[in-house]
Design a binder for these strands. Structure first.
Length: 477
RNA sequence: GCACCUCUAGCUCAACUGGCAGAGCAACUGACUCUUAAUCAGUAGGUUCAGGGUUCAAGUCCCUGGAGGUGUACCA
């Protein structure tokens, strides 16, 4: 009904000789600029601003509007006597949601509100769908995610999250570029997937009649570039994992991975700390009611050691049956976990991970859950690896990269075995990657950081869907 | 995947143990030249997510399906 009325208003505008969809409009100032230093504008230069009408108060021959541009909103005062009777007729046909431009001086009303006194009024784009009610805004989560544009129109804090997201990515990029890392692009479509434990999405290339996977990670390609002599390399990558969705998982998500030749995992911990030092300049933030302190150096805890400390059990060098027994004693459900690596990992996340609120590097993970990491130089059975944990969330993964091709070959073979034992997430054997590192890969440190989770933490968002503009939803039926 | 919850006007929400489907905002008509959740008078607006069942009677109870949320599983 309302839509019918809005189309009716559009028609009436056309009958009055108005084109309701203009081509351009000269804006002299953003509303934000005017609000920031009002004294420079009040009763001074003529400004023109443009934005969406979000509310309308008509009083006979005058009207007040609130318009909103990208960042801010401001009141507009329209007088029939100022803009002319013809234009005032157009203004009367304007609906909430229409996009307009106004030109005039800034003044303060009796109630001290900064207002544009419009001498010229231009309807720039007629809307034909009613916006949600102004006071309660848009609450329905389904509409907010499915039609994010309405969410952005109505909810300023949502817009702020995505501006912040862009800022975070820019900060990371700037730091890496500052250290002469080269930004590259590597394939999303991969004939062999690898670099992480996950189920891939599969697709098909018709012309080549070839099965392809959407990447679950870009690690093995970036390492090829290290082999090729690009000594510092990074990529902001959309990765895809064919798995369940929850507060911290979306099937497509963003990671930044970076690799530095001649560095080890200690060096990479320093860069990660530096990145967060820049992302959180005042040293601490609050996330979901908990204070998080980012001051360097971050706490480091040993993978096996922290489990022992927490539970009293030393789970290193145990058989699968012994591990199952320990898990049982700790009341951890490991029904679906078959390999010792999976059980160990589960014990860790159930006992230690959730309590790590302040940024912590969990270091020296077991070798059997780290097929791309180099063995620890001193401690047998573990690798040189760290996972940064913040607010109980794993926000990254990093190692001194394994560059011994024969050992890598062996590790892939282990994965193939696990795959045969039923672990559908175990690696495929990537023979081309082995070939690449056979040409010689320098010692290298590498890091992957989960951008979405980092944005969640820095914007105090409880769900990954709040930091992804268009999170995956089922098709509407 | 499983469990629980939700789905009513464009939006935000009501409707008792089954008994005429309602309000505010938005919209429409009229009044109003400093209002701001403008005000005042009036008007209109519904496949109650879809389909089936029980009943004299279903928004409400039952079944099937859909979408969303929360938790859990999976997921490094």
């Amino acid at each position: 009904m309302l839509e019918k009325q809005m189309i009716e208003n559009l028609k009436k505008m056309r009958e009055l000789g108005e084109n309701p969809y203009k081509y351009r409009y000269d804006i002299t100032h953003s509303i934000k600029e005017i609000l920031e230093r009002p004294d420079d504008f009040i009763e001074k230069e003529v400004v023109s601003v443009a934005g969406r009408v979000i509310s309308k108060r008509r009083h006979g021959k005058i009207m007040f509007l609130d318009i909103k541009d990208e960042m801010s909103k401001m009141q507009v005062y329209l007088r029939k006597d100022d803009i002319g009777a013809d234009i005032y007729e157009i203004a009367k046909l304007m609906d909430i949601g229409d996009i307009i431009g106004v030109k005039g001086q800034i003044f303060k009303t009796k109630t001290e509100e900064l207002t544009v006194k419009s001498d010229e009024f231009t309807l720039l784009s007629k809307s034909l769908k009613p916006l949600p009610e102004k006071f309660h805004g848009l609450q329905d989560k389904e509409i907010r995610y499915r039609k994010r544009y309405i969410d952005l129109i109505m909810n300023d804090d949502v817009k702020a999250v995505f501006f912040k997201r862009s800022e975070i990515i820019e900060t990371i990029r700037k730091i890496l570029k500052g250290y002469n890392f080269l930004e590259v692009e590597t394939p999303v479509l991969q004939p062999v997937y690898g670099g992480a434990f996950a189920e891939p999405f599969t697709t098909h290339h018709n012309a080549q009649d070839m099965k392809l996977y959407l990447r679950i990670a870009n690690e093995l390609y970036l390492k090829r570039l290290i082999v090729g002599g690009i000594n510092r390399v990074f990529e902001f990558a959309k990765d895809f994992r064919n798995e369940g969705m929850d507060k911290t998982h979306n099937p497509e998500f963003t990671q930044v991975e970076f690799y530095q030749a001649y560095a080890d995992y200690e060096d990479m911990m320093n860069i990660v700390e530096e990145i967060f030092e820049n992302l959180v300049p005042n040293g601490s933030i609050e996330y979901q009611g908990q204070k998080i302190d980012f001051k360097r150096p971050w706490k480091r805890i040993d993978f096996y050691g922290s489990i022992k400390e927490k539970t009293g059990f030393d789970i290193k060098d145990k058989t699968v049956d012994e591990l199952k027994d320990i898990a049982k004693k700790l009341h951890i459900d490991i029904e679906n976990k078959k390999t010792s690596g999976k059980i160990i990992d589960e014990i860790f996340s159930e006992t230690v991970q959730n309590d790590l609120i302040n940024p912590t590097f969990v270091i020296n993970q077991p070798i059997d859950i780290s097929p791309l990491a180099k063995m620890h130089r001193d401690i047998p059975g573990v690798v040189e690896r760290f996972e940064p944990i913040i607010a109980g969330m794993e926000v990254g993964n990093a190692f001194s990269e394994l560059n011994d091709p024969l050992e890598q070959e062996q590790r892939f073979n282990e994965q193939v075995k696990e795959r045969k034992l039923g672990d559908s997430e175990a690696f495929e054997f990537d023979i081309e990657f082995i070939e690449a590192i056979k040409y010689g890969m320098p010692p290298t440190g590498g890091v992957g950081l989960g951008i979405d989770r980092i944005v969640m933490i820095l914007t105090d968002s409880p769900s990954i869907r709040d930091v992804i503009l268009f999170p995956l939803l089922k098709k509407e039926k």
